[in-house]
Each structure stands twice: as C-alpha cells, then as structure tokens.
Computed example of a mutant assay.
Amino acid sequence: MESMGEVLRSMNNPALRMRSRDLEQELLNHPLVLRLKSEHPELEESRLRLHLSRLYQYVEEARHCANCPGLERCPNDFQGHFSKLTVESVGGFPDLYERKTACALQVNKDSQERIRKRITSFYVDERALSEGYDESEIMGKDPRRAPAVGRLFQYIERTKEEGLSPRGLYLYGSFGTGKTFLMCYLLYELAITGYSGVIVYTPDLVEELKAIMMEGQKVKEIVDTLKNCDLLIFDDIGAENLNPWARDHILGPILNYRMNRKPTFYTSNYPLDGLEKHLSFTSKDGEEVYKGQRLMNRIAPYVDVVQLVGENQRGYSS
C-alpha cells in the first residue's frame, strides 16, 4: 500500500486523485477495518474517513507485526509498539482514537529490565546474570549436580510460596562446577517475584574495600547496600586475602545485621570447617581462632549446607 502522504501530495493530478479514491476504498475494505466497523456499528463511516491516516497506520503496523523482523529491527513508528484503535464516545458522539500498545516482545524486554534492575553485582561477570536460564539444561548438564540443583530449586519454590526466610544456602564444591551460575539463577528467579539481590565476588570486594578504607562514605554506601538487600550472595568466600579490618569491621557487621533478618548465601571451595580455618587467619595478625569462630557463628547457624559435585565446566582440571 502506498504512503498516505504520497497520495495527498499528488491530489492536483486527476489520475492520481482517482488512485487516491481507490486506495481509500481499499483501506476501508481491508479486513481489519471491516472488523472494526462490524464491532462498532455506531461509528459512522464519515468519522472513519476523517481518520484515514490512523486507519492506514493501524493496517500498516499490523502488517509489520504479522511479519515481525524482531524487536531491534521493528519498522513501526514507535519501536516495539503497534497502533491500537478504540472507539469512545465524547459528548455523546462516538469517535476513533489511537493508542500505542507494547507488543509481546517489548513487554518481555521491559519485564526483563525490571527484573535485572533488582539485581546488583559487584565484580561478578555480567554474563552470568544476563544470558538467560534453561531449567532442564541446569538440571541435566551433569547428573552428579542433580541433588544440589534440586535443593536450590526447592529453596526457590519455598520462598515464592512462603516468603523470605532468614536462612540462606552455603553452596560448596570444587572449581568450575557452576556454583556462581546457580546462585545467579536463584537471584534471577527471586527477582521475578520482586526481591532485590546483590552478588559480590568476595576477593575483589575485600581488595576494593581495603583500597578505599579511608573513604568512609564510600565504604558506608557499600556496606549499607549489602546489609539491606533482600538476598545477599558472597561468591567465592574463602578465596579472599583477609586483613583484620575487612573481617572484623566489614564482614562481621554485615553478617551480624543480616542474621535472623534476611538470608545470606555463599559459594566456596571450602566446606564450613575449612572456611572457619580461613577466617581465623589474616595476613597481619596470623591465626586468631576466636575471631574466626565468632564470624562463623554468624554464618553456620543461618545456612543450609549444599555440596555441589560435578565436572569442571571451565575446560580444565581442578
């Protein structure tokens, strides 16, 4: 169908005036317009003729959507939206009105963006949060992972049904078995429900905090974010190079605030007893068993321990 603007610009030519009348009839007899007329017999044809440009837009955008080239190549005037016509009475007279309506692809994109905004990551590969998830692949990728994956799925479903619990999960296993990926999946699924979440790569977090330890306001902002989010994940805890300040004045207060309030999650290469040994040692003061035990007392009672067994997915032996 020709552009309505092109037709109107050529009205001085008799042959083209005839063509414009043919196009008008073609438009008024288009199946979409005929259906609109049958659904709204109260709308006089004279009103339709006053809104030929709207009808044209409506028909053209419906054609584009029927042959959708994808959201990024959407040819409609307002990307990801199509013209929707409604008939409304104003002052007792029915008339035609146009509204831009988001298509299914745009609705899905907007939904994904809202979900993603509920998740904050510090020093974690964004691909783990943005590439999407296939539950059957997660469960079936390595049969040895099935018990741990099942526990994760159970936690997600229970939280969706019963609400947030103060208990989190401690997921440990060897290198490359997918611990971070599974925790990102948990964050994503619960963000759909409306919960906010933060995942931090613990070694980089500790080094960053050491670097800015004299900048009190920045440190406070990070600590407050970790304290107050609904779901907090310390990824690869046990791999960081602790000093007493980071352990006793950062990790300790965060965990002390969250226990009995909000769940905290962990991934680690260590089982819990191995983590306790790690937390008992700092580069400055050496071994301090009591302080390690004190921190573990804010971790162990508030998590369910899940061992993840499986192949190294990174393509090398651990």
Rank of each mutant, 00 (worst) to 15 (best):
L23S: 05
P147M: 05
V223M: 14
P147H: 07
Q106C: 08
A66M: 08
S130D: 03
G292T: 06
E44T: 05
E6Y: 07
R118N: 10
Q217P: 02
L182A: 09
M214K: 13
Y316W: 11
R47T: 09
T267I: 02
N13R: 09
L52Y: 13
E215D: 14
E6F: 04
E39A: 15
E60L: 15
G194T: 00
M11W: 02
E44Y: 10
Y155N: 07
D95T: 14
Y170H: 01
Q217W: 08
E26M: 11
C68N: 03
T180L: 10
E208Y: 15
R158P: 06
D125W: 07
Q112S: 10
Q154C: 01
G216A: 05
V303F: 08
H30T: 07
L50F: 13
Y195H: 10
N260C: 06
M18G: 04
C229D: 03
P203A: 07
L34P: 14
R116L: 14
Y188V: 01
M139N: 09
C68S: 07
R49K: 15
L55A: 10
I299T: 04
P75Q: 09
Y123H: 13
E137V: 12
K262L: 13
R158K: 14
Q106Y: 10
V107R: 15
E2Q: 04
Q25F: 11
L279N: 05
Y170C: 00
E189T: 01
E72C: 01
L34E: 14
E161T: 00
V309H: 09
S53H: 11
L186G: 09
S165L: 02
E311W: 01
R35P: 03
H30F: 13
D285M: 08
L23C: 03
E2S: 02
D110I: 02
A146Q: 13
D110Q: 14
T264D: 10
V305P: 05
A246L: 09
N269P: 09
Q217S: 15
Y257I: 03
E311C: 04
E113T: 06
N12T: 03
V90N: 11
Q154L: 08
L272F: 07
Q79H: 11
Y123W: 14
C184S: 13
R151W: 03
T264I: 01
T86H: 10
G274F: 08
K117A: 15
K100L: 14
Q57A: 12
A300W: 02
D22A: 12
K277R: 15
L152H: 07
E26I: 04
V303E: 01
H249W: 12
G238V: 05
K109W: 11
E311M: 06
P41L: 07
D22S: 11
M259N: 12
L182W: 05
Q217R: 14
D204K: 15
E276I: 00
G178F: 02
E221A: 10
L242N: 12
S174N: 11
Q106I: 00
K210Y: 07
E60H: 12
L272Y: 06
G197K: 01
S10P: 00
K179W: 02
N312V: 00
Y302P: 04
Q154G: 06
G194H: 06
V107A: 05
P14C: 00
